[in-house]
């Protein structure tokens, strides 16, 4: 009984304290290095995909790399600010369909695999990206 009396406040404290101690997604993705590696692998994977590779024909890939890195860092609670176009503006005129959005998601998944990002961490990033479908897919 005495053990429980001591244990209860301790458990309660842990439950309250735990969220603060939780690492950001940015940390779990390997910080700046991890995100740089992921962006490299992602771009390789997007361009090599016959389903969506052509979408990037008119894209300035240097700028795209900078923007994607900033966006991942920003949404993962890293020390960056994404100052690029909104998703709606960035994808305007591309007439993308759901299948294109999902193809990119699959490419990102394989890039995350190659980059050594664990499955659960992958899903945390995908959960932040998934709602962008509404702005990206216009067809």
């Amino acid at each position: 009984m005495a053990h429980w009396i001591i244990a209860f406040p301790a458990i309660a404290f842990l439950l309250v304290a735990a969220p603060e101690a939780k690492a950001t997604l940015y940390d779990d993705m390997g910080g700046k290095e991890g995100i740089d590696r992921l962006v490299d692998n992602s771009i390789k994977s997007f361009l090599a995909d016959p389903r969506i590779g052509k979408t990037f024909d008119d894209t300035n890939m240097v700028r795209f790399r900078t923007m994607l890195t900033a966006q991942f860092c920003h949404i993962a609670d890293g020390p960056c600010k994404y100052n690029g176009h909104s998703m709606a503006v960035a994808h305007r005129g591309l007439a993308l369909r759901q299948v294109d959005f999902n193809a990119l998601a699959e490419d990102l998944q394989s890039a995350m695999d190659v980059s050594g990002i664990p499955f659960r961490t992958q899903n945390r990033l995908l959960a932040l990206l998934a709602p962008m479908q509404r702005d990206v897919v216009t067809k």
Binding site: L126, A127, L128, A130, P131, Q133, R134
Partner: peptide
């Protein structure tokens, strides 16, 4: 609703 996209 969309089971995948409605993550927000």
């Amino acid at each position: 609703g969309n089971v995948v996209y409605d993550q927000d």
